[in-house]
Design a protein around this nucleic acid. Structure first.
Ligand SMILES: [Mn+2]
Ligand SMILES: [Mn+2]
Ligand SMILES: [Zn+2]
Ligand SMILES: [Zn+2]
Lengths: 152, 152
DNA sequence: CCTCTTATTGACAATGATTTTCATTTCCGC
DNA sequence: GCGGAAATGAAAATCATTGTCAATAAGAGG
């Protein structure tokens, strides 16, 4: 699963080099549909390239997030989760269970929803002179498993 | 600025006691319009009650969040931020500058926006059998200060 | 008020994700 | 191939948040 060449351009554009470790991280992110943590990604990368260290994974994820190629999320479990922006999954929002931590992707937006967000984004960036590059929406609550049951 | 008595009820309802440290934390949260971290709150509390420890502040914030009286946010600067749910500020969403970390509250929703969220929330909770208790919306980008300028 | 039970607290240690450091290696234009 | 800048990995350092545990304080009942 080789990394598409258009990534090279992306990296060059910001004066960065395309390296094996970076490819490896991108490949893992491309292949998954889960919300991986830095360590998760490190383990996956490690299967193919045992020499690559966790530090580099962190650095790569940071860079990718800075470049806007990767989203960094916090679902409240004490570690960051990462998702490719242009991955297999299209743009989506999240449902997060505050009890067990389960995260559900949700992308079947109503057309109104998309329209409204564009509208709001435009209005906000004008009003606050803000250059909006992304948005994150999370619905919090209890999933079907945790609904009736006890806490923790 | 004494803590309203209705809090006592809230606490009793979950078998908890209303204590000085807890009052102090609530008072600080009530008095501010900022997005304070646990340590920020600790410093404020400390001015009035130097004996109260940081650990207790953390525990109190945890409890309040659990009770649904306080929102816990992550704006990407490595520490959690807290806001009273029923504070001086009404329900609002956030604009977060990914460069300098500035956070802007935004509550002048369009009526459509409110309507749509209720609608979506209803649809989602049915479809995924999820009991939705809250939502968080963040718009990410660069504030007016950071717009043209350099990074970091 | 006084007593008793138990939730709560505070000092301190421990945890664990993320960063820093720094010497070494790799990339890439020349 | 060379040379300088960018990138890497191992290990140490940071630092927000949690866990421990003996001491304290709420508040129900008398
Ligand atoms: Mn997702
Ligand atoms: Mn706010
Ligand atoms: Zn759950
Ligand atoms: Zn800014």
């Amino acid at each position: 699963m080789p990394c598409p060449p258009w990534w090279h351009g992306k990296f060059r554009d910001c004066g960065c080099r395309m390296t094996i470790p970076r490819q490896a991280v991108i490949d893992v992110l491309t292949a998954t549909s889960e919300h991986l943590s830095a360590e998760d990604i490190y383990f996956e990368v490690h299967k193919v390239y045992p020499a690559i260290g966790l530090t580099t994974v962190y650095r790569t994820l940071d860079l990718l997030a800075q470049m806007g190629m990767v989203f960094k999320f916090d679902f409240g479990d004490g570690r960051s989760r990462y998702e490719l922006v242009e991955g297999t999954k299209k743009h989506h929002h999240h449902l997060v269970c505050t009890n067990c931590g389960r995260v559900i992707d949700y992308s079947d937006f109503i057309e109104e929803e998309v329209k409204l967000f564009n509208q709001v984004e435009k209005a906000l960036s004008q009003k606050h002179n803000f250059e909006i590059t992304a948005h994150q929406v999370q619905f919090l609550g209890r999933c079907n498993n945790c609904k009736g049951g006890n806490n923790r």
